[in-house]
């Protein structure tokens, strides 16, 4: 041992080292471990917060998407409803117009029939009078009013059978 140069300095060095170890353990070690733990905690919190925010953002996105989809569907429904209402209205108007036209046509036909009736009656009267006039001329005024009246009636009857 002496030849190697080993003496009690060895023991002293171990004691020195143990003193240093105790000192560093008490004074230095704890702050280092604390600060590292704090940093680890801080980073873990940040990561967790970021994850949380990402989830919230995703939820908001889903919500907005759903709302947008709903709004789009509602708009579609409103448009469809409006289109249907418009079509119904148009149909109604066309129906009313048709009915009106029918009514006008019928009243016009009635008017025409009435006018025709009136014209035919007038024509009959005139034709009868003219015929009598002609007949009077022809018969040289030999006819009595009774005979004339009988003739007129007969003529009217015949004329009524004419197609006009």
């Amino acid at each position: 041992m002496e030849a190697l140069g080993i003496n009690y300095t060895l023991v002293a060095q171990i004691i020195n080292f143990v003193i240093l170890l105790i000192f560093l353990r008490l004074v230095v070690y704890k702050p280092i471990v604390n600060i590292l733990e704090q940093r680890q905690q801080y980073i873990a919190n940040n990561v967790a917060a970021a994850e949380e925010e990402r989830k919230q953002a995703e939820a908001l996105r889903q919500q907005y998407l759903a709302e947008m989809q709903k709004a789009r569907e509602e708009a579609q429904a409103i448009i469809q409803q409006a289109t249907k209402a418009g079509e119904d209205k148009a149909q109604e108007i066309v129906e009313a117009a048709k009915a009106e036209a029918q009514r006008i046509k019928e009243s016009a036909l009635e008017e025409i029939a009435r006018e025709k009736e009136k014209a035919v009656a007038e024509l009959r009267d005139q034709v009868a009078s003219l015929s009598i006039l002609v007949a009077q001329k022809i018969i040289n005024q030999t006819i009595t009013p009774e005979i004339q009246h009988g003739l007129v009636q007969e003529f009217i009857k015949e004329a009524g059978d004419l197609p006009c």
Binding site: G5, I6, T9, L10, Q13, I14
Partner: peptide, 15 residues
Amino acid sequence: SPTADVNTTAGMAIM
């Protein structure tokens, strides 16, 4: 260097 003395290194090693 304290470690240039064999006592120091032997002390550490024995520890």
